[in-house]
């Protein structure tokens, strides 16, 4: 499977989960549940102590995961098990320091060995990306670029070098469910499309089937994280079933 496969059957549902919350065994079950429910690609968050792009839900999830003893190596081991059953594209999402401290090349080679298809680092903007994107590409993994409502004059440059898919940040601020997404998503998407043919996935703030449907009108995929991690926070070890039900709802909604 390659990244493009996530977008070939209609609108892609791209859930994000924080690995290790409440523990890595449950994370493994949640991945199976999402896969079975019809997720197109799963973003696996490797927890970081100080996630500056995250809202309260994923901050707390990261904190619980680290308290449970989650490490980069343990996440790799979990993914190795998962890969025996799950074939849809997987992406790692974490922060620059997690990758840097592991050794940048080492991190990407390990990821490639696990058939991880993409890596997303929200604190590595275009200006700093070569240090990561070049060794990432050499390992055969796509380094995902983010575009925000504030990107303005940067959109063209970023879009033209983007690989895999574009992660379009829906609105200002950090991750987390919002009642409404303001701003002109349509024209931002249109601008991105004029510079690249790769798929566009919208994330940040999408919390319900309705808002997923709304965003899918513009984009090729929708990314949902905080809504899922809130279920994990509320249900702990019983979360996999709840996540399955929620994911089914979204997948169905995206078919309409």
């Amino acid at each position: 499977m390659i990244i493009a496969d996530a977008f070939k059957d209609g609108k892609a549902f791209m859930p994000f989960i924080t690995c290790g919350d409440p523990n890595l065994d449950i994370t493994e079950e949640i991945i199976y549940a999402l896969d079975e429910a019809g997720a197109s690609l799963i973003e696996l968050g490797i927890p970081f102590s100080d996630p500056t792009a995250e809202g309260p839900v994923i901050q707390s999830a990261s904190e619980r995961a680290l308290q449970a003893g989650t490490t980069t190596d343990k996440v790799f081991n979990m993914v190795e098990k998962v890969r025996k059953k799950v074939s849809i594209p997987l992406a790692f999402m974490t922060y620059a320091n997690v990758v840097y401290s592991y050794g940048i090349e080492n991190f990407f080679q390990h990821s490639a060995g696990l058939n991880v298809n993409a890596v997303i680092l929200p604190d590595v903007p275009f200006e700093e990306k070569d240090e990561f994107a070049i060794p990432c590409k050499e390992s055969g993994i796509d380094f995902i670029s983010l575009i925000a409502p504030t990107s303005a004059r940067r959109v063209e440059t970023i879009a033209k070098q983007a690989q895999g898919f574009i992660y379009l940040v829906s609105s200002l601020g950090v991750t987390g469910v919002r009642d409404q997404i303001h701003g002109d998503i349509a024209s931002l998407v249109q601008e991105v499309r004029s510079h690249t043919a790769i798929p566009i996935a919208i994330g940040f703030g999408i919390g319900s089937a309705r808002s997923a449907q709304e965003m899918a009108k513009y984009a090729d995929g929708v990314i949902m994280g905080s809504a899922i991690m809130q279920l994990v926070a509320d249900h702990g070890i019983d979360a996999p079933d709840k996540v399955y039900d929620f994911a089914r709802e979204i997948v169905e909604a995206l078919k309409d």
Binding site: T52, P122, P125, P149, S151, R154, V169
Partner: peptide, 12 residues
């Protein structure tokens, strides 16, 4: 040094 921040802040 450098500028390791989210894209949202880059223009600022």
């Amino acid at each position: 040094g450098g500028q390791y921040i989210p894209e949202t802040l880059m223009n600022a």
